[in-house]
Structures are given as structure tokens and as C-alpha cells.
Amino acid sequence: MEFIILLWIVCGIASAMIGTSKGYSGCGFFLLGLVLGIFGLIIAAVLPKRDSSQAATSTRTCPMCAETVQVAAIKCRFCGADLPPLPRPRTWQEDVERNL
């Protein structure tokens, strides 16, 4: 019985290490490995590495001075240049209409 509990804890720790190395939450993957055991470890191993561009979506680059500013900024805090508005993301309805 102790061996099974120890195995579950080891799966949780290993899942957390794998998840952290791939850019995911270590605590979340620890719980995944702790609850699912060896299946959680397999899930952590087969998931792709998180793209760093997905994580940093709250900033953009000023076109005048190339400094990093918030996405919601209207004016650059470094050079004072007016920032162009970001294009509005298309909705799924617009995608459907476009493909018809």
C-alpha cells in the first residue's frame, strides 16, 4: 500500500518537473500526476512545449522606438509617439461568411 502512495507522489513530482520544463504550471501538473498517476505522467510527456509568444500577449513593440509597451497603450511611454490601433480579431461568424 505504501508503495502505491509513493508511486503516485513520484508521478506527481515527475509530472510537475516535465510540465515546468515545457512552460506550464508546475502545481497544475503536480496535481495531474498525483490524481492520474502514470497516466498524468504520460500526458505531461506528450504535451507540446508552450510557445513563448502565447504567454506574452499583454505587450507589443512601439514602431518608433522599438520599446515594449502594454497592448492597451495609445501613446508610447518612452518616446511619446501615437501607437496605431491593433486590428480587431475576427469572430468565427466572419470566418464562416468569408469562406462561403
Rank of each mutant, 00 (worst) to 15 (best):
L47Q: 08
T59N: 04
A81W: 04
T91L: 09
A72W: 12
G28V: 11
L41T: 01
F3Y: 12
L32W: 00
E2G: 14
C65R: 04
P85L: 05
A45L: 15
G37D: 05
P87G: 05
A56G: 12
G80W: 10
V46S: 00
I4L: 04
V35R: 02
S58E: 13
P84Y: 06
P48D: 02
R88Y: 07
L34P: 01
P63K: 07
F39T: 11
L100G: 02
I74W: 13
C11H: 00
M64F: 12
R90V: 13
E94C: 05
N99H: 13
L31G: 08
F30Y: 03
D51N: 15
I18Q: 05
D82H: 05
I43C: 02
S53K: 09
A81M: 03
L6Q: 13
R50I: 03
L7E: 07
S52L: 08
D82M: 11
R60G: 00
K22R: 09
I43P: 05
L36H: 02
S25L: 04
C11M: 07
C76T: 01
S21F: 03
S52N: 10
I18L: 09
T59V: 10
I18N: 06
T68C: 11
A66C: 09
A56R: 15
M1P: 13
I13C: 03
V35Q: 02
P87V: 07
L83G: 03
E67Q: 14
L32N: 00
R98C: 03
D51Y: 12
S53D: 08
R98H: 06
K22D: 03
F78P: 06
P48S: 02
C79H: 07
D95E: 12
L83V: 06
T91Y: 08
G26T: 00
G80K: 07
G80E: 07
L47T: 10
V10F: 09
C27R: 15
A66N: 15
T57E: 11
F78V: 11
E94A: 08
T68D: 11
T57I: 13
C76E: 00
G26N: 02
R50Q: 07
A44V: 00
G23Y: 00
K75I: 15
C62T: 03
E94K: 09
Q70K: 10
V96C: 11
N99V: 14
N99P: 06
G19Q: 01
F30L: 08
A73D: 08
W8L: 15
T61A: 14
S15Y: 09
T68E: 15
Y24K: 02
T91I: 04
C76Q: 01
S52Q: 10
S58T: 08
M64E: 15
G12F: 02
R98Q: 07
L7R: 10
L36E: 01
D95V: 12
N99G: 14
S21A: 06
P63H: 08
S15N: 08
L86K: 04
Y24W: 04
K22N: 06
W92I: 15
T68K: 12
L86S: 01
G37L: 06
V69L: 04
T57F: 06
G19V: 01
S25E: 04
A45W: 15
